[in-house]
Design a protein around this nucleic acid. Structure first.
Lengths: 263, 263
DNA sequence: ATCAATTTGTTCGTATGTATT
DNA sequence: GAATACATACGAACAAATTGA
């Protein structure tokens, strides 16, 4: 496999401004060849030859693109075009939430607000799509959540699957991925919260039922109310946790330490 | 500068599963040391010694973290904790939009829907904050936009500054950064659209005025209407462009080609 | 303004682990 | 199991950029 049909001239080894542009050139290659997720890329060595840079540089560029989910590397086999997902957003936000203790609460609160805004923002479109339909699979998920809730078990998987399926009719890929990304950040950070009461859990489960029913009736407003209701228990938990953290350590600000300089 | 006071034992050079974990260890270092954006990191060589990996591996890890805006590298000087921004989201979405022609329209349409949802989602909070205030700087920005609009000039900078300042009172960092990120993607992709009519431009400018006035009156609903009005001209342009693209190339779907195999 | 020191950027060669055939 | 193709990792050397004396 070669990068272009006629082997390019050896490329005068421009030793200038390589690093940044190598990743950019690989992106350009993907764009120019019209590759789509899953398509194979040339090997690192071929890429290096074609671009006129060493394998090390190619590797660093590939690392960059890999963390952006623009390429995907299969160890010992090859490199492929990645899924172009919002994975980098997730890892970045999770890292930010893990930076300091009250940062978790802050991140959680902010993520929650975004989730609510997005869920409300697609209310009209969703209620149009679902109007007059019946959705056994979604309702089964709610039933399973209800069952597990009564049995005192977790139902994270069912919750994620419910939200994913609920938005699946949307032809807005970014909204779907964004909601999924924030759901993921959410579930990664939420365990630091106090255990919710069983009443709060029940409310959450029933809110799912209400969301689904409202959509099947094509009632956008009722759906929006159900969304608010769905997030209400979590919102209360967060407010409690924030208040508790404030009470426990009111003077916990260490100030700025050694910022910005270097010897 | 050393990673920890007492130099760690040489670390048995585990030659296994390095790559991925090196970036993770550097993140852990940042977290454990309580570093904040702008703080200096040890040099690549020191990092390699402390982590027991080669400098090449450290560099690849740093490239990963750099693309996530977790670290920032200054050539010839040092490595620092990055801004933890949503820059990777921006570059990823722009690349996605650049992949194919109608992908631009699709991306633009989806980004627009997210922007609307987010702007509407913070209506209540914003109108509470702005209620009863006067904001000369924001109004001056609108005036400048109006002036440039009449002079037939662009006012991208003023538009971005207006939205940035408008949301600045929000204590939700993620929403602010998210809105900023999508504004950026938006302005990068929008030039592929047809030139809007001067009437549409005027409408957009006046919508800014309405948004500001509604907030100063604390009228969340009026603000939401102004937001809709603000995006309406763009939404029409996009629908036109999508329709035009459909008419021009109704059979432009090449289907799935060579997805996933290699050989 | 020049020079030296420090640090990142780039390259090459080589050895090793891993997945596919 | 063997062969092949490929990614992973290391280390040393040199280039380029930045800072400060």
């Amino acid at each position: 496999m070669s990068i272009s049909q006629e082997a390019r001239p050896p490329l005068p080894r421009r030793r200038r401004q390589t690093g940044w542009s190598t990743a950019e050139e690989i992106k350009g290659f993907i764009r120019d060849e019209g590759l789509t997720p899953g398509d194979p890329l040339p090997t690192e060595a071929e890429l290096g030859d074609a671009l006129g840079v060493s394998r090390s540089s190619v590797r660093e560029a590939i690392r960059t693109l890999e963390s952006l989910d623009i390429v995907k590397v299969r160890h010992g086999y090859g490199t492929y075009v990645g899924g172009l997902s919002l994975a980098p957003l997730v890892s970045g936000l999770i890292f930010r939430g893990s930076l300091n203790q009250d940062g978790s609460f802050r991140t959680l609160r902010e993520v929650l607000q975004v989730r609510i805004a997005l869920d409300l923002g697609v209310a009209d479109e969703l209620s149009q799509v679902y109007r007059g339909t019946t959705n056994d699979e979604l309702r089964e998920l709610v039933d399973e959540m209800r069952r597990r809730s009564h049995a005192g078990e977790f139902f994270t998987d069912q919750d994620g699957e419910f939200h994913r399926r609920l938005l699946s009719p949307l032809d807005n890929t970014i909204v779907r991925q964004l909601v999924g990304a924030f759901w993921e950040v959410h579930t990664c950070v939420v365990p630091m919260l106090a255990i919710p009461t069983s009443a709060a859990i029940d409310d959450t489960v029933e809110a799912h039922e209400h969301m689904l029913s409202a959509l099947e009736e094509g009632d956008s407003l009722a759906y929006q109310e159900a969304v608010i209701q769905h997030y209400a228990p979590l919102q209360r938990s967060i407010e409690l946790a924030v208040a508790a953290a404030r009470d426990a350590a009111p003077l916990a600000d260490p100030g700025v330490v050694s910022a910005g300089e270097r010897g």
